[in-house]
Design a protein around this nucleic acid. Structure first.
Lengths: 342, 342
DNA sequence: CTGAAAGCGCTTACAG
DNA sequence: CTGAAAGCGCTTACAG
């Protein structure tokens, strides 16, 4: 069962000891230039590939991180993954992928497997707001396993977070609509129970902006972050509040459902009614009319989350990764919003 | 540097030897029921987690497979990943993810890392048609590393493949349009150089269907599998061939670009012109009008690819995984196609 | 059904 | 700057 070419083979061919080979492999600086070159040449000639299990066992580090995502099929999430992946590649870390499909049990299962020394740390992206899971994550973080959480609130100071300011984002969006002259603005919220208080915070931002402008009028319909539910929510809104001139959706996907309902009702966007989304998913710029929205820098968030994790794993000072980072949402104006009708 | 609780700790507490602990851990059948229970209990009590590096080193197997994808952000590809992931989970295999971003060098880099004993086998999804890469894959397959290729042609009998019958799919689509009474059908092809001969084969299918129906009329425009290029291609088609009544796009994403061009030109779909896509990406059913298309069973393809790989890794008989599997495309009728105008 | 022993391929103090 | 030796935490014939 012996591997054909291992570190010992290299040592023999180069006329040195295994220790020395290991040193050049790991770029230790206390090796003479001539030995290093000699060893490198043998490595190249014999096409030697270090065995990562052996390395992992001996060094107690695997140079791989675990990535937990709720749903990789959704480009909203895969954009985080891509950012994280790119950073990992840069730093020569590998990624172990776990797709939880929104199922808490699966998420736990994945994390447990990660704990089997397969992984030096874990990057968790979004995910449900389950209590059981939270407890587990907390216990993890307080123990030995480095953990970073992206796109999600967590009440644990030991877990560095990368997130977005949802209150401010919704505030900004509402203010923008107000600035366009809209006075009757409906809000289609997501799912109150869902992850990261995203929907709750967005509702807060909407309300705050209205209050700051002394506007009493407010209509909030639940769309559950679902396209079809948002379709229904939109039908309800235009039926019950025909005087409304703008609808702000807590996600682009819901806005897309809304657009369809509006079209069905014969309402033109943005001439008759303005539509504002949230997230800036790829679809937002593809759909017709292109959606105005609040952009969430998902690639950067994933990238930064991975950067923090690796900083931690590499033992860099806590100042560089310990602080939470909260990104702002950027307003993207496209075709679905316009000034209120005179 | 010793781990607090290892197999030896368990052995001590249970009053047995490490060998026995290892046996129950690996579900060997030659352990008495009483010892097994005793050991299991200790394992549970001490919350023991086996160290996968040690396991990997000793057993020469990591129970993880490498997944190479071109672009995880694209839901077309992530659907394969999800299928593969689900199957891996079922079989208790882990997934190491590598996103090549379409860059051949990165793809090679990923595969090389996988070779460092991190991975028992590789599942390659789509990807470019580079010669260098092909050679490398061939050399891999002929050596020790199990490899399965999904959504891609490869001239190597030692590499089991899971693919789709593109010629037949395009044939079917064209026949469908013909059946609707269309006689002047344009085809927007993809990228001749791209992976898997997908575009080339689809063009073949289109031509074959026309030939079988004794129709000489044929118009082929390149759209490079790109939305914007397809937009331009569509403008060219309607300008140069105003008598055309249907356009068949080699991908849904191109069809979406086409829809936009058609709308801009004031043409109604499907009243004035029918539009048929290829792939059945999520967007196809979201867009308005919903796209008729040929469905590629990506989830199943990913799932089956992983199944084959694991069958191979588990040493199951070659009959169960050695054969290539070619799926048919399924015609999905939605709103963008209709009978030709009288 | 169970244990002792060798070994998987590396890293890492320690000594020189 | 380099080598010998111990050790990382498992698995796996081998023997009984």
């Amino acid at each position: 069962m012996k591997n054909s070419v291992d570190i010992y083979t290299i040592a023999e061919h180069a006329g040195v000891s295994k220790s020395t080979v290991s040193r050049v492999l790991n770029n230790k600086d206390d090796v003479s230039e001539t030995t290093r070159e000699k060893v490198m040449e043998v490595i190249k000639n014999l096409n030697y590939k270090p065995n990562s299990s052996a390395k992992g066992l001996a060094s107690q580090r695997t140079k791989t991180v675990g990535l937990v995502v709720s749903e990789i099929t959704n480009s909203f999430f895969s954009m985080f993954v891509k950012g994280a992946e790119d950073k990992a590649m840069e730093e020569n870390y590998n990624i172990m992928l776990a797709n939880s499909n929104w199922v808490v049990e699966e998420e736990l299962k994945c994390i447990r497997i990660f704990e089997e020394g397969r992984v030096d740390g874990i990057l968790k992206i979004s995910g449900g707001g389950d209590e059981l899971l939270n407890d587990y994550l907390n216990s993890l973080a307080n123990k030995e396993m480095p953990l970073i959480v992206v796109d999600r609130k967590m009440d644990n100071e030991n877990i560095p977070k990368v997130n977005v300011d949802n209150i401010d984002g919704a505030y900004k969006g509402t203010k923008y609509l107000l600035g366009l002259g809209h006075k009757k603005i409906a809000f289609v919220k997501g799912d109150d129970i869902a992850a990261s208080d995203a929907s709750i915070d967005r509702v807060k931002g909407y309300r705050k902006a209205l209050a700051d402008s002394n506007i009493d009028y407010q209509v909030i319909e639940p769309g559950f972050f679902d396209r079809e539910d948002a379709f229904t929510a939109t039908e309800n809104i235009i039926k019950n509040h025909p005087d409304i001139t703008a609808i702000f959706y807590a996600s682009d996907m819901m806005a897309v459902g809304g657009l369809k309902a509006l079209k069905k009702a014969g309402l033109k966007v943005p001439e008759d009614i303005s539509v504002l989304g949230f997230d800036d998913i790829e679809l937002a710029s593809i759909i017709d009319p292109a959606l105005s929205t609040l952009r969430q820098p998902r690639y950067q968030m994933g990238y930064l989350g991975m950067e923090k994790l690796i900083d931690k794993l590499e033992g860099r000072p806590e100042e560089v990764y310990g602080e939470d980072v909260i990104f702002e949402l950027e307003l993207i104006e496209r075709e679905s919003t316009g000034p209120v009708k005179a």
